[in-house]
């Protein structure tokens, strides 16, 4: 690296594209051992990530009628994308995906933050409470979905029965068999399942908040809210960004809870992108349309991934700068 830079200085002329290319190759050659170390991982990634991505993009350009084998697919260019983007169901499912992702992420994060702050203090039984709050995250999503399905059951669910017994309702509440309440009901389950993850991440983040700063702020007369807002929260900014991005990625990709609890119903009211893709591919064998959907989802995931990597490397750059 230094040799090229010095050469550019000594020659005292603007660097051309050829210089840059030569510089890049030279640097790569010098760092060849590093590339060799990561080569096995790169090969594995090529096989298990790059090829499926290529294949999915390729498949998205074909029509795959239910009566034909996949190898007999018909090339139709970008028609699948046009079909998806012009269909009313796509926009309905997209809207539902956004609602699902936004509210799941928001409330899982807020609940996780609250739990992390509460558990950051020393009190009797803190360890036990922390373990209890971790249960939703540890429990298998499949098992949790079945349990919640029965808790919500519209005729014989425990929640509905309890509300009737307490006099809060005349009859069991219709949680998942109603197009207006099904999605919010599933979001509640998702928040319950995810908030522990946010809690763990933020508890780790809280360990980095300097205690002396908090004490100094207290000595200066800052109240609890001011100490949180001006001292604690800024130190949590990095981990919060990462946590929110990870939650968003997980929620965009959610499948188990909506699929097991409602299968996307009733009348498609809990269909989100992933359930729609699954249904198109494995239920209806519209591999081409499902692939096009997947490519669109991939682009969104890549965008989120970019911000995630940037958030992760932000700290490294700051440390390097310091």
């Amino acid at each position: 690296m230094s040799g090229v830079t010095e050469g550019a200085i000594f020659t005292d002329r603007p660097r051309t594209g050829a210089d840059k290319r030569a510089g890049l190759l030279s640097r790569m050659w010098k760092q060849r051992a590093d590339y060799l170390y990561v080569l096995p991982a790169l090969i594995v990634m090529m096989v298990v990530i790059a090829y499926p991505i290529y294949y999915t993009i390729d498949l998205s350009l074909f029509r795959t009628p239910a009566s034909l084998q996949l190898r007999d697919k018909i090339f139709i260019g970008l028609d699948n994308y046009t079909t998806i983007l012009s269909s009313a169901s796509f926009w309905k499912v997209t809207w539902q995906t956004l609602i699902w992702t936004f509210f799941s992420t928001l409330f899982a994060f807020l609940l996780g933050l609250g739990a992390a702050l509460a558990l950051h203090r020393e009190f009797v039984g803190r360890g036990l409470l922390r373990a209890l709050l971790l249960i939703p995250w540890v429990v298998s999503a499949v098992a949790a979905s079945y349990v919640w399905k029965w808790l919500y059951h519209s005729d014989f669910g425990a929640i509905g029965a309890m509300m009737v017994q307490l006099g809060l309702a005349d009859q069991p509440i219709n949680f998942v068999d109603n197009i207006n309440t099904a999605l919010p009901s599933l979001i509640v389950v998702n928040i319950w399942k995810e908030f522990s993850f946010a809690m763990i991440m933020l508890m780790a983040g809280l360990q980095t908040v300097p205690e002396q700063l908090l004490r100094a702020a207290k000595v200066d007369g800052a109240n609890a809210w001011q100490r949180f807002w001006h001292v604690t929260f800024p130190h949590l900014a990095g981990v919060s960004t990462v946590t929110i991005l990870l939650l968003m990625v997980a929620n965009f990709n959610s499948f188990i809870i909506p699929w097991i609890m409602t299968g996307g119903g009733p009348a498609g009211s809990t269909d989100i992108w992933i359930t729609q893709i699954y249904q198109l591919a494995f239920g209806r064998q519209r591999w081409g349309v499902a692939a096009a959907y997947s490519v669109l989802l991939f682009l969104i995931m890549m965008t989120l991934g970019y911000f995630y990597v940037r958030a992760l490397t932000q700290g490294d750059k700051e440390r390097a700068g310091a």
Binding site: S154, F156, V176, M261, G265
Partner: peptide, 16 residues
Amino acid sequence: VPTSALTNTQAENQGP
């Protein structure tokens, strides 16, 4: 009929 008909399979009717 059961409100849960929209999410029920036959197995869920056996209990009731």
